[in-house]
Simulated assay, not measured.
Amino acid sequence: MEDKIRKNLEVQLSEVETLQSMYNPGELRVEDLNVLADVNAFVEGRAPDLPAYLDLTVNLLVDQHKFELCINLSHEYPDVEPDLFVRNHKLNKQQHAALNKDLGDYVAGVSRGEPCIFSAISWLQDNAQNYVVSEEVEERIEKDEALVRYWIYSHHIYSKSKRREIVDLAHKMNITGFCMPGKPGIICVEGTTSDCNEWWQTIKAMNWKRIFCKISEQCQDSGDGFLKFRTFEERVFQNSSIKCTHMNMGELYKFLDEHDCGYIFKDIFGVEVKPGPL
């Protein structure tokens, strides 16, 4: 298994090197150069521990429209599809979702075992403009001020670009809660129904292995005391500074309990919490 991972990472390094020769630093960005160094060290046998996943961002200008392609490469790539999604803040929710779905469908049709990032970039350059409307249409939606709280479960949340987008969009929409990265990934968002729905539709449109809203809570009264969090932040529950993988469930429960949400732990994980460390 380790030999196979090393072979996959060799392919990833070669692909990154090729992309770096084709794009300047303003167009192609390795999100964490330390991770790139760790991958090199592992491939060369200088480091025994598996490195974190590589995160790349490609900035493209297509017909004067700026698109950002965010890429996360697992240890299994290129034997599995890359985790990628496109951002363009001028696209509405429907356009954004359609673009990411169609790009995902295209990548899914590419033969596995071969690098496909350049193919994805080429597809985006050829097709991205088709998802941009020529005139902005402003939709007026009456705000539903009822309060809700969504508990969202993801198979994993590793990509730094996705993690940044989750937090930035929540701040932009005045949503509170938290995001726990790793495997599994847990997100709690709370706020008005319209704001939470818009945030969820945008985040759900990204390319995920599996993500769904597991529990939805609605305010049944005037709203006093319903909101449990004062802001939105990423929370990592680990005993050390090692790479973000599996979280400390005991620390997560303690955090939930401190915010009067300890009851939700059993509903999410199906485990009854007992006194003492988990």
Rank of each mutant, 00 (worst) to 15 (best):
H155L: 11
K172M: 11
G185W: 01
G177K: 04
P184Y: 06
D168N: 12
K160S: 14
L169Y: 10
K162A: 10
S154A: 15
Y153C: 07
Y158G: 01
R164T: 11
S154K: 10
K183Y: 04
V148M: 07
E142Q: 15
K160M: 13
R149V: 03
I152D: 01
A146Q: 08
E165H: 08
S154G: 14
D144C: 10
Y158W: 02
K172D: 15
P181Q: 04
Y153W: 12
P181D: 05
A170N: 08
E145W: 13
R149T: 12
Y153N: 04
T176R: 11
D168C: 08
L147N: 09
A146K: 14
R164I: 05
A146W: 06
A146T: 15
L147Q: 13
A170W: 08
A170T: 09
V148H: 07
G177A: 01
M173T: 12
L169C: 03
Y150G: 05
I166D: 10
Y150C: 05
C179V: 14
N174I: 09
T176K: 10
C179H: 08
C179N: 13
T176G: 00
A170L: 10
K183I: 01
D168R: 08
E165G: 02
P181A: 06
A170D: 11
M180V: 15
L169E: 12
K162M: 10
E165W: 09
Y150Q: 06
R164H: 14
H156I: 02
P181Y: 00
K162W: 01
D168M: 12
R149N: 07
L169S: 06
M180N: 04
K160Y: 10
I157T: 04
K143Y: 12
P184V: 02
K162C: 04
R163T: 06
I157E: 05
Y158V: 00
N174F: 08
T176A: 05
G182H: 00
K162D: 01
K143C: 12
Y158T: 00
A146P: 06
L147H: 02
R164L: 11
K143H: 13
L169F: 04
D144G: 03
S159P: 03
H156Q: 06
K183L: 00
K183D: 07
K143V: 12
V167C: 14
H171P: 01
E142T: 10
K143R: 14
Y150A: 08
Y153V: 10
I175V: 09
I175S: 07
D168F: 03
E142K: 14
M180F: 01
L169P: 00
M180K: 04
N174T: 14
G182I: 00
G185I: 00
M180Y: 02
S159I: 03
Y158L: 02
I157V: 13
M173E: 10
S154R: 11
I157C: 03
R149H: 02
I166Y: 09
F178H: 03
G185M: 01
F178Y: 11
D168H: 10
E145N: 14
S159G: 11
E165I: 07
S159D: 08
I175N: 07
G182E: 00
H171D: 15
P184E: 09
C179A: 15
E145L: 12
M180H: 03
V148Q: 09
P184T: 04
K162F: 00
L169N: 11
F178E: 05
K162N: 06
C179W: 00
S154T: 13
H155Y: 15
K143L: 09
A170Q: 08
